[in-house]
């Protein structure tokens, strides 16, 4: 690892999503930070704790209700947060355009964010933001190391074909995969400190960006459930079913 001056600022965009582990039985759906974004926050914190970054700024888009997730991010340890006040159902491209405006305002050297939000599962925003800014990107990343006085980062990517290693010039966008780290939990001292950290609220107008979502969800439905099959009592019975009934062997 080359020693050198640290990355001045890491921007971590995060999304508030319904708790994916609440289970179907949960009557009240609690919101949480998108788990992939939580990994991004953790990574930024670890980078700062290694002395390789100075400031971590979080950003999310939504109504005042998402302040709860902002406070959770502040309690994890990010330095300050921006909420872009927009309660509309935005599509990934609209989100990317808003984030571009914020990136231009904040000028971070690195943007780290989850590879996808677990509610929408689109997996688009990071790549779109990189495209809009003309910045390099490394997606689905499971390891980050800074190189050469923080002018580049070496990233291990999880791809369908196995692991791939690339180096990207900074500033750049990095999207996180599951195995990058294990996010820390919010501690009570962290929560108390978070109460004193600033949350800035901005509107799209203040950022000078006008977006209108181009994707609209017309309806949602439940997928047809697979019917439960039969229980078999032995290996012999299973083999017989696979051969004679299912005809797959």
């Amino acid at each position: 690892m080359t020693q050198g001056q640290s990355v001045e600022k890491i921007l971590v965009p995060f999304k508030s999503v319904p708790d994916p582990y609440a289970g179907a039985a949960a009557s009240t759906s609690k919101s949480v930070i998108n788990p992939f974004d939580e990994i991004a926050i953790e990574e930024a914190l670890q980078i700062r704790e290694r002395g390789e970054a100075t400031e971590i700024v979080g950003v999310t888009i939504g109504a005042p209700a998402v302040d709860e997730q902002i406070r959770a991010a502040l309690a994890m340890g990010i330095d300050r947060a921006v909420r872009i006040d927009d309660a509309r159902a935005l599509d990934p491209y609209a989100v990317a355009r808003i984030l571009r405006a914020l990136v231009e305002k904040e000028s971070p050297q690195v943007v780290i964010m989850g590879k996808q939000a677990v509610d929408d599962d689109s997996n688009q925003v990071g790549q779109m933001l990189a495209g809009l800014l003309g910045w390099p990107q490394a997606t689905f990343v499971s390891k980050i190391e800074f190189l050469e006085n923080k002018t580049r980062a070496r990233c291990t990517r999880e791809t369908d074909g196995g692991l791939e290693i690339v180096a990207i010039n900074l500033p750049a966008i990095i999207t996180t995969d599951l195995r990058l780290n294990e996010p820390r939990y919010v501690s009570l001292p962290g929560l108390m400190k978070a109460r004193r950290k600033p949350i800035e609220t901005l509107t799209c107008e203040q950022l000078g960006v006008t977006v209108r979502p181009m994707t609209t969800t017309l309806s949602t439905s439940s997928p047809t459930r697979r019917a439960a099959g039969t229980r078999v009592g032995s290996v012999e019975e299973l083999m017989a079913k696979l051969k004679q009934e299912a005809k797959v062997l």
Partner: peptide, 16 residues
């Protein structure tokens, strides 16, 4: 990895 970036360059929305 590639297509959302291309979508942004084309100023186009995307459906995954």
């Amino acid at each position: 990895d590639v297509l959302p970036r291309a979508a942004a360059l084309l100023d186009a929305p995307m459906v995954t």
